[in-house]
Simulated scan of single mutants.
Amino acid sequence: MTLAWDPTTPPPVGPMSMTGPMWMPTRSPTFGRMIAWHPQPIPLLPALAVGLLAAYLVGTAVLHRRGVRWPVHRTVWWVAGVATLLAVTGTGVDGYGMELFSVHMVQHMVLNMLTPVLLVLGAPITLLLRALPSAGAAGRVRRGLLRLMHSRFLTALTHPMVTFVLFITSLYGLYFTPVFDWLMSTWWGHNLMLVHFLVVGFLYFWSLLGVDPNPRLSRRGPRSLPSPMVSVMEIGATAPFHAFFGVAVMMSTTLLVRFYAHPMPGWGVSALADQASGGGIAWAFTEIPTLLVLGALLATWQRSDERRNRAAERRWKRGEDTDLERYNAYLQALARADQERA
């Protein structure tokens, strides 16, 4: 892909000058420049963010026309997730992320650990299944989606061990190997890496939170949720790896990636110090999504308990309290056993 330089913008200095003619920020980063809109040759991820928001709102509008109530908090979560996606891919964060390792690490953490959590809490699969009619072409799409949900491929892909490996490989397999420099050598590679962060994070939290239908829940039953202890253990399992990665990057006396070896002249940025800042961001950021996930799991389990209690109360009012019947039968069995021994 050949792109022309803006004649008013000086060419980039450093590693990106080897990747071809792409727009890059040349002035030192400030808060205003970081949140300003960032022109791109092809705004791939910003367009994805807008598309995700539009599709979700169309789905809620379809349900509204049918008189089906969609929880407002689900829409709020989804909008927040799209906003975080747009904030790190459509603003100056994206541009400065190609010049500074610390800014890139902000992108990585948000796309891999924050945006996916917010999107999963929006329950997009549930919305899609409810919005799609069961007849016609849309019905075929719906049935195809359900078949995919029960496919061996997706079952294997969402296995806790697979998602765990993918999640951790996004750190160690990327920054401690030449893969990062290779991907960052092209604009397409850079965007592919960002999409990878988002997809891997979504797969991980999708199967972990149990908000939407997924193969993991299908194996456990139609109304089941992941075991609370298992979910907490899965979250806790990734925390030491993230912490160790952040500390290793902060303490490193050599540059892990060559791409950021030459910061823009005049910015007063040391590549090694900037790398240490990126490690600190990776280490500190882990707590934010962890607390968010734990809070979401707690709320989900509480709602599940409330639903079970309401169902039990309705059965009791109808005289169908099976738990009480089983308990009474157990007491009667004990009484009969005592009489036989006597």
Rank of each mutant, 00 (worst) to 15 (best):
286 T>C: 08
11 P>E: 08
307 R>I: 05
270 S>T: 00
271 A>R: 00
80 A>G: 11
273 A>Q: 01
308 R>K: 14
204 Y>M: 02
92 G>P: 01
8 T>S: 14
273 A>C: 00
333 A>T: 13
24 M>P: 00
299 A>L: 08
51 G>K: 13
150 H>D: 11
272 L>C: 04
281 I>D: 00
51 G>P: 03
216 R>A: 09
88 V>S: 07
316 W>S: 14
232 V>I: 13
129 L>N: 07
124 P>L: 02
332 Q>W: 14
166 L>P: 05
260 Y>V: 01
341 R>Y: 12
336 R>M: 14
141 V>D: 01
303 R>D: 13
214 N>Q: 03
136 G>W: 12
98 M>R: 15
263 P>H: 02
226 P>A: 07
216 R>V: 10
101 F>M: 02
280 G>P: 02
23 W>F: 13
227 S>R: 11
325 E>S: 10
211 V>C: 07
227 S>V: 02
319 G>D: 10
274 D>N: 00
13 V>Y: 03
317 K>V: 15
105 M>W: 01
54 A>P: 01
1 M>S: 15
229 M>C: 09
303 R>T: 10
217 L>N: 01
321 D>G: 03
241 F>D: 06
177 T>Y: 12
48 L>C: 12
143 R>I: 07
55 A>E: 04
118 L>T: 08
271 A>K: 00
176 F>H: 07
135 A>N: 13
238 T>L: 09
325 E>K: 13
310 R>C: 08
276 A>L: 00
325 E>N: 11
62 V>C: 02
159 H>P: 03
325 E>Q: 15
263 P>L: 01
159 H>F: 12
61 A>Q: 12
242 H>F: 13
280 G>A: 10
261 A>H: 05
50 V>S: 05
262 H>C: 01
79 V>P: 08
330 Y>G: 04
289 P>V: 09
158 T>A: 06
191 N>G: 03
32 G>Y: 05
108 H>F: 10
48 L>Q: 04
229 M>D: 09
313 E>V: 07
222 P>M: 04
326 R>M: 12
114 L>Q: 08
205 F>W: 11
172 Y>K: 03
217 L>P: 00
309 N>H: 14
44 L>E: 05
308 R>L: 15
260 Y>L: 00
121 L>F: 10
184 M>F: 09
233 M>A: 15
237 A>V: 03
175 Y>I: 00
254 T>N: 03
236 G>H: 11
297 L>V: 09
264 M>C: 05
327 Y>C: 02
122 G>M: 04
36 A>E: 06
103 V>E: 02
97 G>F: 06
150 H>N: 10
102 S>K: 00
45 L>W: 09
278 G>T: 05
267 W>C: 00
149 M>K: 05
191 N>H: 15
66 R>K: 11
126 T>C: 06
341 R>E: 09
41 P>C: 05
39 P>E: 06
114 L>A: 06
253 T>I: 02
137 A>W: 13
214 N>F: 14
127 L>Y: 03
54 A>D: 05
90 G>Q: 08
107 Q>H: 04
318 R>D: 13
69 R>E: 15
71 P>E: 10
58 V>K: 09
304 S>P: 04
168 I>G: 01
247 V>K: 03
184 M>N: 09
57 L>R: 11
68 V>Y: 04
169 T>I: 06
